[in-house]
Design a protein around this nucleic acid. Structure first.
Lengths: 170, 170
DNA sequence: ACTGAAAGGGTCAAAAC
DNA sequence: GTTTTGACCCTTTCAGT
C-alpha cells in the first residue's frame, strides 16, 4: 500500500468532518455542513486538503461481494519457506489471486494472513490448490468463517471521536 | 453483516459496469458509459438496480486510516471460553472496540480473527489489555503486521471478469 | 431497455475577509 | 487560512417510447 510521506495534520474541524462522513455514511458536502455547522465552503476546502493528503483516497461505490454472490469467506494463514527475498514477490503473487481481498505480511510463525471471498466450494478448492502450488509456500492453514461481524468497509466508524482527538491532535 | 434475502441476478452488462467501477475507480455514470459503450441511461438504470439489491451499498469516500496516522496493523486471534451463547455477544463487543476494523467469527481452534489499526504502542497496549479482560475471552494471539499488501478497499478489483462470468452467470 | 428534458447538487475559481 | 459568491457541469429522476 502506498502511503504519503508524512501524516496529515488534522484539527477539530477535520475530525468533525471525517466522523460525520463515517457516521452518517454520506459524502454530500451539503449534509456534512448541515450536521457539523461548518460552512459549506470550508467543508469543501477541508475535503480538498484531505484528498491531497490522501486520507481520502477516492470517492467510490461500496461494493458488497457477499450480496453479489461471493458468500464464502476464508481466513488463510501462509507459512513460507526460508529464503529472504521470496517474501515480497510472494506477497504480490498472493494479492493477484482471484478472490483474495486482503494480504497482510506479518511477523511471527505465520508469514502471511490472507482473507478471501469465494462463491462456491469449487472456487474454494481452486484457491487452496493454487496456494499450495505457489513457489515459496510451505504450508497453509485455512479457516472457514461462520459469519463476518465487521468487514472494514467504513473504517472510521470504528474509531471514536475521543480516540481521534487523543491520538491525532497536537 | 446484513445481507439481502436473495442474491442479485446479474448479466454481462452488470458485470461490465461493476468491473469498470472497480478497475477505473470511478463512480461517474458518464465514464462508465464511455468505457463500456453502454448508453448512459442504461448505466443509470442498472446502477439503481444494483443499489436496490444492495450490491452497491453506498457511495462514499475511501478513507485511509494509515494516512490519517493509524499506521500499526495487528491480526489478532481470539480463543473464547466454552459456553455456546457467548459467541454472538462477544463478537458484537469486539466490533465495538476502538481501532478494530474487521471481525470474523470462525470455525476451528481460533474463534475470532480480528484486524485492528492503531496509532501508537500505547494504543496497542490498551487494546490487548481490553481484549484480555473481556468476558469469555480465554486467550489471544496478537500478530504484528509488517506491511499490508492489500487492504480490501476495492474488493471487485480482486475478482477477474472471467471469474465473475463463470461464477455469476446463469 | 432506452430517450430527453428538467431540477438539484457538486465543483471550481476568483475574490473578500 | 477561511469564507462567500456565482457560474458551470454532471448526476438523478421521471414521463414517455
Amino acid at each position: 500500500m502506498d502511503q504519503p510521506d508524512t501524516d496529515m495534520d488534522v484539527d477539530e474541524k477535520d475530525i468533525d468532518i471525517l466522523k460525520t462522513i463515517a457516521d452518517t455514511e454520506t459524502r454530500s458536502p451539503d449534509r456534512i455542513s448541515e450536521v457539523t455547522g461548518i460552512p459549506l465552503s470550508t467543508v469543501n476546502y477541508r475535503l480538498k486538503q484531505l484528498r491531497e493528503a490522501e486520507v481520502i483516497r477516492n470517492d467510490h461505490y461500496d461494493i458488497d461481494l457477499e450480496a453479489l454472490g461471493f458468500e464464502i469467506t476464508f481466513v488463510i494463514q501462509i507459512i513460507a519457506g526460508y529464503e529472504e527475498d521470496t517474501y515480497e514477490p510472494l506477497g504480490e503473487k498472493l494479492a493477484d489471486i482471484d478472490g483474495i481481498t486482503h494480504v497482510y505480511f506479518t511477523a511471527g510463525d505465520t508469514d502471511f494472513f490472507v482473507i478471501a471471498q469465494l462463491s462456491d466450494p469449487e472456487m474454494v478448492e481452486d484457491l487452496i490448490t493454487t496456494l499450495e502450488r505457489l513457489d515459496g509456500v510451505e504450508r497453509t492453514i485455512s479457516t472457514y468463517t461462520i459469519s463476518t461481524l465487521l468487514d472494514g468497509h467504513e473504517p472510521l466508524q470504528q474509531i471514536s471521536r475521543e480516540t481521534m482527538r487523543d491520538r491525532l491532535l497536537d
